[in-house]
Design a protein around this nucleic acid. Structure first.
Lengths: 168, 168
DNA sequence: TTGACATAGTTAGTCAACTAACTATAATGT
DNA sequence: ACATTATAGTTAGTTGACTAACTATGTCAA
């Protein structure tokens, strides 16, 4: 996402602001730090998951299936919820099926459709991964009390509303 | 980064927390919202840059060069600052050189080394892109006053310190 | 001074995302 | 009823990251 390691110092930002008067130094700084921390969090999550032979994409598929009462969904629905294309979902399911964590079950009522079902092995995998993930995440967020977490979410909400202004 | 569109509701998180007692609901929620907003910001930035035929990777290279007094740096230094491998930097420079935005100048003192120099066309490109970027970013962050921005940065700092606990 | 190691950059091959096009099936409107 | 359109999933090909290995050059210590 944000590869940039060398975030601009206030000095650099000031220099740029001289050339580009629209620059808002604290806005740029907050923006870059937000991207930096989020990227590092995402990388840390990947590192954690890779110990279990998973990547974020496949892991989310397992979680989305576990959310369902039936432990079952369709590739299309999974793609929408996971925020990837159907083509990408085909690949994720291929990998999960090869690992025995999900199975494809062909539907009777609509022969275009396939049902993806979490296997016992898939559930067992989650039962190993999730406690580790939750434990690490708890540690990571420990320094923020409930009030700070609430404030953070509020600010994220404000920025989120501003994104439409960014895109126009 | 975080593709997941369908963030868990409190209800879903509560259900998961029953099975996995280590789950800290507000920690998970804050974490996911942070990743979600950051990903959307990054995507919005890409959208903005793509109008100018740029991607984040190449754009950062131009900015890093502009930060230098000499408008010049080496692929290795750029790779370190941009947070990509040297192999990736070779590709980024290839693209920028083909577009005429940078040039490779072979060094005399160390014949292994190459100097990458921002061309006038590269500087001109930045002079078009940066004002648009800064204007959009100002709009986007408008809803956060200086105090909120400062609070945000403080919380990001706390989370950042926690990442080491995540990785272990 | 020369053999071993280090550094700079590139190339080759892999991976997981993407788009676009394709097959098969279902739904719909005249 | 059947041609058109929509939907579900897959396949093929592209992209931009990555690692590993390679070439060339520089450094240093026995």
């Amino acid at each position: 996402m944000l590869q940039l390691r060398d975030l601009p110092t206030t000095e650099v930002l000031t220099k740029f602001a001289e050339r580009y008067p629209d620059a808002d130094i604290t806005a740029v700084s907050s923006f870059l730090h937000l991207l930096r921390v989020a990227t590092d969090l995402s990388t840390a999550l990947d590192t954690c998951l890779s110990k279990y032979g998973l990547l974020q994409g496949r892991w989310w598929v397992l979680i989305l299936l576990m959310r369902e009462e039936s432990r079952t969904s369709t590739p299309s629905a999974l793609a929408d919820k996971a925020g990837v294309t159907r083509a990408t979902m085909t690949g994720l399911i291929d990998g999960l099926e090869q690992s025995g964590l999900v199975v494809r079950v062909y539907a009777k009522d609509d022969r275009r459709s396939v049902l993806i079902s979490l296997t016992d092995a898939g559930q067992a995998k989650l039962d190993v991964v999730m406690p580790d993930y939750y434990r690490r995440l708890r540690q990571c967020m420990q320094a923020l009390d409930e009030e700070k977490r609430s404030q953070l979410q509020q600010m994220l909400g404000l920025i989120n509303s501003g994104i439409s202004a960014f895109i126009e």
